[in-house]
Computed example of a mutant assay.
Amino acid sequence: MPAAASATVILSGGPVSPLPVEVGARARWGGTGFEAVMLDAGTQVVGTSLNPVGSPVWQLGQPHAFRLFWNWTTGALTWQIDFNRDSSFGAGETASFTRVARIGTSFSYVLLTANSRTSGANSNAIDISNLRINGTNLGSFTADSASPSIGQFFEPDPLGPRFRSIEILGNLVFRNTGGNGAFQGERPRMQIDFVGAEPVPEPASWVMLVTGFGAVGAALRRRRPVAAS
């Protein structure tokens, strides 16, 4: 189910101090297709790999729609890529799993990164277009010889509301810009991460909070003046 946009999303300079990556998904060009991973403080704890034998494959130079959805109420991360370009996220193109410890977690930032290969026998470029986060269109981004890497934070505006459920949509194009398309070293990739986690209060904290509200309410009732008859 799509995430409701509680605020406009804007480009951001990111946190003042480095924060650990919490939840993320990655797309890589190559026979291994794409993968979805869940991170806990930067360490992969849950993951899956799709398109392991390269069928269907990326169509170089052609846009592939993608969707990343974080459901904060269930802790489920869904990663979808339209490999066969049939305008739908069909069977074999979807990964979904739940990390129970993340139920109710909200985030301060979304981080988009991408890396291209611009030297050696084979070079490539990555185009990300029509990027939308919770309904806000944020434009296009390219990693190529002019700028080999992308590192862009996004945050809600006005400041204050945090990302809860997050839906990210866009198109991804891998372009071979030199050589025969063989890979050397790490494959070109795009990754989306959620940064600056704020978990829901523990049950004991909720009890203390409710008890505190009750005590304040009782005090206010005791201080309320009695109307003269």
Rank of each mutant, 00 (worst) to 15 (best):
R224I: 02
G61C: 03
L68Q: 11
Q191G: 03
T32H: 06
D86V: 03
E186M: 06
S12E: 13
L77R: 02
V57M: 12
G181S: 05
P63K: 05
V23Q: 07
R164E: 13
G54M: 02
A36D: 11
P225C: 01
P2A: 08
A65Q: 14
E35Q: 14
G181M: 14
R187A: 14
E155R: 15
P201E: 08
A36Y: 01
A41D: 07
I81Y: 10
I81V: 15
F183H: 06
G92K: 04
R223P: 03
R67A: 05
F141K: 11
F69M: 03
G160T: 08
D127C: 04
N171S: 13
L19F: 05
G14M: 07
T74D: 08
A228F: 14
A91H: 07
A215R: 13
T43D: 03
M208L: 14
A197C: 04
R222M: 11
R164I: 00
S12G: 11
V207M: 09
E35P: 02
R222G: 04
G179V: 06
G30C: 10
A25I: 10
E93Q: 09
V23L: 06
I192A: 01
L131P: 06
R117Y: 01
R224G: 04
S49K: 05
R164Y: 11
G14T: 08
M38H: 07
E198S: 14
I192Y: 00
A65V: 02
F154Y: 15
S205L: 00
P225E: 02
P2Y: 04
S55I: 02
G178H: 06
S140E: 09
D40P: 03
A91I: 09
A114M: 01
V100P: 08
G54P: 05
N124P: 03
V46P: 00
G212R: 05
T211G: 06
V16S: 15
P148A: 08
R175Y: 12
F194A: 07
A204I: 09
T142W: 06
A204P: 01
M190N: 00
V195N: 05
F183G: 01
N84K: 03
L50E: 05
F141N: 10
A36T: 08
F174W: 12
V45F: 04
D193C: 00
T48V: 07
S49H: 06
A25C: 12
A121C: 00
F194P: 02
V216P: 02
D144N: 15
G181R: 12
M190A: 02
A227W: 11
P63C: 03
T98A: 07
A182S: 15
F97N: 11
I166L: 14
R102Q: 09
V57R: 15
V57L: 08
G42F: 08
W79Q: 10
I192M: 09
S129K: 12
L77G: 00
G24A: 15
P52Q: 02
S205M: 00
H64D: 11
Q44I: 06
L19P: 02
M190P: 00
A65R: 15
N51Q: 15
F83Q: 06
